[in-house]
Design a protein around this nucleic acid. Sequence first.
DNA 1: AACTCGGGGCA
DNA 2: TGCCCAGAGTT
Length: 209
Amino acid sequence: MEQKERAMKIIEELIPFYPAKTALNFKNPFQLLIATILSAQCTDNRVNRVTERLFKKYKTPQDLAISNLKELEEDIKELGLFKSKAKNIKEASKMICEKYDGNVPDCFEELVKLPGVGRKTANVVLANAFNKPALAVDTHVFRVSRRLGLSSGETPEKVEKDLVRLFPEELWNTVHHLLIRHGRQCCRARKPLCQQCAVSKWCNHFNNN
DNA sequence: AACTCGGGGCA
DNA sequence: TGCCCAGAGTT
């Protein structure tokens, strides 16, 4: 079977199990950007809880740009990695105010210049705030893609290239969400729940063990 | 490619 | 207690 056909079947079989729903409840580009920077290495529930509180206190990019760093660290402490995250969101807010007139840039090359923003965060913002074709690869998408044989790339960037080639761009964000949710709920890094997996028949990891 | 950052939730 | 979490930056 052709690669693209196989890839589409996998996605179609996952759709019924994971209803479309973004983890971060922010539509406004600035709030989504900040929430996504803060989401590194902590659970999405906690990010939502802390950021909702954060945006009541800091309503605009300017508010964050001129915030007191120590106070900001306390505001997001429970997320972990809080010192670097506080510094990054303050500095990113400052850059957005000064270089981009208070608006989050809507292209990849500018987004990744912001502190705390890498490939994954930039693509999440492009896809979910600007409705642009982008495919974010995080640790879940990376692992699941390799197990399902959608890519054999050794780095997230290589896996991203393979996925982008396999799927039409209107499906990129769907693929992102399906693979993340599958990775968290079933295809976990350790002790994956292969017995209840909807796509184990396609899976290298399952069929080789 | 490997290492560091890091508090909180959960077993 | 110990393990892990919707990563990015540095060496």
